[in-house]
Each structure stands twice: as C-alpha cells, then as structure tokens.
Design a protein around this nucleic acid. Structure first.
Lengths: 219, 219
DNA sequence: ACGTGTGAACCGATTCACAGCA
DNA sequence: TGCTGTGAATCGGTTCACACGT
C-alpha cells in the first residue's frame, strides 16, 4: 500500500545541519565571498565535506562540478528548503524569567522568526509589555492563536502545566512547539515537538568531565 | 595497538537519556513509589523499555529479574554514573540578557550544579550582583577559575568573542563547556563542548511545519 | 511466572570512493 | 583538472527475542 520508496527518507539531523550551513553562508556573504567548495564551508563546522554534499543531495544538485557553490544562490535554496524565506510569527506561552529572556532574544530573527503573541496565566503579568510584546491572558490564547493563524509556539511554562498547555496549543492549531519544560509532551503526532533541556544537557556533560577508569563494565 | 575491545563504546545518547531517567526517578520517589519496571518508568518518556534496559546494561545490572528496579537504589546508581552526587561549581562567562537568565535558572540544581563565578568584560556590569552572584571582570577570569579549580563553564558571550573566550577557558583548566554562542568552537579535544542553539533548532522546526509535496527529489 | 539483561538482527546515518560534468 | 553528486560499504545505535535469575 503506497510504499513509494523508502529510500528518500531525509535524516532529521541533515535538516538541523542545513540551519548551520545557512548561518555560515550568511557570514561568508558578508565577507563578500562568492563561491565556496564543500571543503571551505565545512572548515569551521566540525562536519565533513562529504556530509555537507550528501545533505544537499537530498534536495537537489546545487553546485557546479569542478567549481563549488554560489554563496547567494545556495543561501536562497536552503531558505526555500527550510521555509524561512518569509517572516513567521510565533506565540510564546509563559512569561516568567525564561519567557522574558526569550522575548529579548534576537537570534530567532536569523531564521526570520519573531514572537508575535505572548501569554501568561499570572494576572499580575498580563498587560505588561516586554520587549515590545504585550502579555495577554492565557484565557484568550486559543482564540488569538487561531485568529492570527499562528502555527509555531515556544512553551516556557512550569513543568506541571506543560502537558495541559501543550494540548491546548495543539487544539488551537499549533503544529510545532519548542518545549522548554523538562517534561516529555504527549501530543497528537501532527504536532512536532523539539525539547530544549539545558539541565539534562549539563547532566551529561558532568559525566564526560569524569576521568573514567579504563573500566570494562562495572566489575 | 592497544585495541582493548571496541564493543564497550557507550552511545552518547545513552548518557543523555540517563539524565532523563534520573529526573523521572526523583518524581517517582516523591510519589512514594518504591519499585518500577522498565515498562513503567518509560511510559511517559517516549523511550522504549528495551532502550532503557540497554542503556543501563552498559553500566551494570541494577534491577531484579522478575521484579523491577528499586527507585532509591537506581537513583543513587545513576547519580554515581553521571557524577552528580556532589555539588559541582560552574563558571558563567557573559552576563548579558542570556547570562542573567542563566543566573536565575534553578533547573541546574536538579543535577547538583550551581554557578559559583560569573564574568563579563563590560565594566558597567562588573560589580553588580545578579541572583546572589557578583559579576567579575573577565581579566580575573583565568586566575579565579584556576584558584577555585572549576572545570565546567557556561559560555554566553556574543558570537564574535566566543572562540577566543573558549580558548581562554580551556587554558584556565575548564574541561566542559555549555556553549550558547551560535558558533562552532574549535578547542583541544580534552575539552567537551555541547552547543545549545535555539535558533537553529527553530530553523529545523520550520521545515517540519511545511506540508511537503510527495516529492521525489527536486525535478 | 515475570521482568531483567543481552547477543544478534536490523535499520538508519555517515563515510568512502569514484563516476560525471563543468 | 577539480569538485560535485551519489551509489555502495561501513559504522553505530536501536530493537528484537529469548535465556537467565529470582
């Protein structure tokens, strides 16, 4: 049934790397560099040239053999692939310390993203304006998100509220969530969730800090 | 030469997951649950029971066959593996908006981590106390880090300074860095670097937001 | 009887190596 | 000639399925 060809599955990681290439291409562009080889563009990325070429090959041939890649052209192609050519509005839920920091974070602009709506259920925060965005009541969240047809959200509420809020976002039409709560969200599969979990990242760094005994197993 | 046995390589991801298990175990402990099966502990984690057991198996047998795992005992074992049993002091470099947010972030405590030193090269910030930590001059960084024998750092400086600062941290004895700058750090291999790159994470989420044409390649 | 612990099978992603084209 | 584009080989991690211990 409909098994087209399983071969064209694109590694999730390949997409992640496209973002990195895009960032680097913009830097190169600012330095007035016009043409790069896969060797040059990956020099400072700890990614192999072959990996770079393979990643691009999932989407088409973008280079000139014997020459390299046109910086401007490739920039455009990758933006088209990622879908970041036009500005995309996001919603933020949770305007605590983390949420406020996200409102002030300029890095999203790099991928043409901006926070257009912000919500909090704490009445004392509602009405305040942080970095140009007015905090609104969570009660109005579903309505406003639907109204503005927003499909991506940043979830920065306390862990105990995350699952419930995630559900509400899903029902409001949100299709992609960057989740900052240290909880695994259980949501309908059409909603894409990426977790940002600094604490656990640190946890695993601590492991690597230890000089391990040569250790085969535990004894 | 010296090929002991390549089989005991522990997947990097397995370590990451240990942090998740640990968090969940603490939750279970608070709910007074004493014994769990691999099935139960992974129920809300989107990790399979087999994966859980495999991950633990790299370090030893910690469960009772036919029964399950003792919550308290396993908690202790994982903390021992990760090396988070005792409080570990970290340094923060860069006390801008992001750095300030990190100083106020309580999540690190979960893994027994705390920020003990904070630095910034902006004279107007030096001397200020944020969340109980005094910002000090980057000029004193190497000396203070060495003095207090700190080995882990959070790097939250602007992108153009990241590489240089990373080097300085390495020379000061830092062996693990959580890097928030959108740059790939080139450091001696004994320094472990983990990148936290929200912007690029969002970039790849945007891709998944798009309803793709059935598309086999590009044309 | 039941759930762990684990070698073996499987699967997906990375790397290799070279054919293809400018 | 030089660097891209890509099947084929390889590698590493996940899943399976069952033997083992309690």
């Amino acid at each position: 049934m409909g098994r087209k060809k399983n071969t064209d599955a694109i590694p999730h990681e390949a997409i992640r790397r496209l973002s990195l290439y895009l960032r680097d291409l913009k830097r190169l562009s600012q330095e007035k560099i016009r043409i790069v080889s896969s060797e040059e563009i990956t020099r400072f990325l700890s990614i192999s040239p072959a990996q770079f070429r393979k990643d691009l090959s999932y989407f088409g041939p973008f280079g000139k053999r014997g020459v390299g890649y046109d910086v401007e052209k490739l920039t455009g192609e990758i933006e088209k692939i990622l879908g970041t050519e036009k500005l995309l509005a996001m919603a933020l839920v949770g305007a605590g310390k983390l949420g406020a920091a996200l409102l002030g974070y300029a890095g999203f602009l790099e991928f043409n993203l901006k926070i257009a709506l912000a919500f909090d259920n704490d009445a004392s925060k509602v009405g305040r304006v942080i970095h140009g965005v007015r905090i609104q009541s969570t009660g109005d969240m579903a309505r406003l998100i639907r109204q503005r047809k927003i499909r991506m959200a940043l979830l920065a509420v306390p862990a105990p509220n995350a699952q419930k809020t995630g559900h509400e976002l899903a029902r409001s039409g949100i299709r992609a969530i960057l989740n900052f709560a240290p909880v695994n969200l259980n949501l309908p599969q059409e909603v894409h969730v990426t977790n940002v979990d600094m604490a656990s990242e640190m946890g695993s760094l601590v492991y690597r800090l230890h000089p391990r005994p040569v250790s085969s197993k535990k004894r």
